[in-house]
């Protein structure tokens, strides 16, 4: 118990240190960069709940992410709801979406689930493009409030919101790894038939994992309309989110929540630099290349490399 408490205190302390460090830098660009990096930490940790723990590949990251973003657009437009409430609603709706897709396809072999999530992104994008209230294909503007009660600067508020979400996701992922849910998912990943034969309720556990993962992705997308001020379907459903999330997680390593965090911080920091210096297409080329190299040469990611070198060191 004290270990758990120490872990949570450590997370909170990291968060507070980050906020103060960025306050020292004190310009909008720092908040923006931090926001993007944390957004990918959240997405990668979420993706890993399904991929790393249960062994199911989700190609629909962009679909869940955009569902969150469009939940905010619709709720702001219709009810003028506060962003924090929008984030919660986005979590509920994307989680429900995950549950629905999972219920439709998780009884099949894993690859069908992957294909279904890929098509989910296209179906939802077509719906949004044809939905004029949500802005249609030309997109929607979201007015950003001048400031916030607690934080003078709205960029800082968005950063802190994403920070809280990312740390919350890490805490949840760490909890899942130790819980019966995590053990059941690991059994599914290693051998689904054997797990089912041993009495693991495979479908129920997979559905819970899909719902949690989807909810986290939706929450990651919810602040996007305020961050970007203008959002069109092409940007919200961009395959870039899917490929980045996947690459970050696989490069970091899928065995625990540490992998996606390492991968997301490394790769998105690199990208923030690369987008300024190289073009955004060149950026994606690097990500794709690094992803292929890692899955071929280091299938367990950076975590696997670290563990392997440690294991050797201990033996010697």
């Amino acid at each position: 118990m004290s270990r758990l408490l120490r872990f949570h205190l450590g997370l909170a302390a990291t968060g507070i240190v980050l906020i103060f460090a960025l306050r020292l830098i004190g310009n909008d660009y720092a908040w923006y960069t931090g926001y993007v990096i944390l957004q990918y930490v959240l997405l990668s940790v979420a993706w890993n709940v399904l991929a790393g723990y249960a062994g199911y590949v989700n190609f629909g990251t962009a679909a869940f992410f955009a569902t969150g973003a469009y939940t905010t657009i619709l709720l702001t437009k219709s009810l003028n709801l506060d962003l924090v409430l929008c984030v919660l609603a986005a979590g509920l709706i994307s989680g429900g979406l995950g549950l629905a897709v999972g219920w439709l396809t998780l009884r099949l072999r894993g690859v069908y689930f992957s294909i279904a999530t890929l098509s989910l992104a296209v179906v939802l994008q077509t719906l949004v493009v044809n939905w004029s209230y949500a802005g249609g294909s030309s997109g929607a503007y979201t007015m950003r409030p001048q400031g916030n009660n607690l934080f003078g600067n709205y960029s800082e508020f968005l950063f802190v919101l994403m920070l809280v979400l990312a740390l919350g996701a890490i805490a949840a992922a760490a909890w899942i790894e130790r819980s019966r849910l995590g053990m059941g998912l690991a059994a599914i990943r290693d051998d689904e038939r054997a797990a089912a034969a041993a009495g693991v309720p495979t479908l129920r556990l997979k559905l819970i994992a899909t719902a949690i993962s989807g909810a986290m992705m939706g929450m990651a997308g919810a602040p996007l309309p305020y961050y970007a001020s203008y959002l069109n379907p092409e940007a919200a459903f961009s395959l870039t989110y899917t490929i980045n999330t996947m690459a970050m997680t696989l490069i970091g390593g899928t065995q625990s929540w540490v992998g996606p965090v390492i991968g997301a911080v490394l790769l998105s920091a690199l990208q923030q630099g690369a987008t300024v210096t190289i073009s955004s297409a060149g950026n994606l080329l690097i990500v794709g290349g690094v992803l292929i190299l890692f899955v071929m040469l280091a299938p367990k990611g950076i975590l696997g490399l670290v563990q392997a070198s440690r294991g050797k060191g201990g033996a010697a």
Partner: peptide, 14 residues
């Protein structure tokens, strides 16, 4: 299952 799918996905992006 996972790495192979990621390989072809990466290839598609490339």
């Amino acid at each position: 299952a996972m790495q192979g799918l990621a390989f072809f996905f990466g290839l598609m992006i490339l």
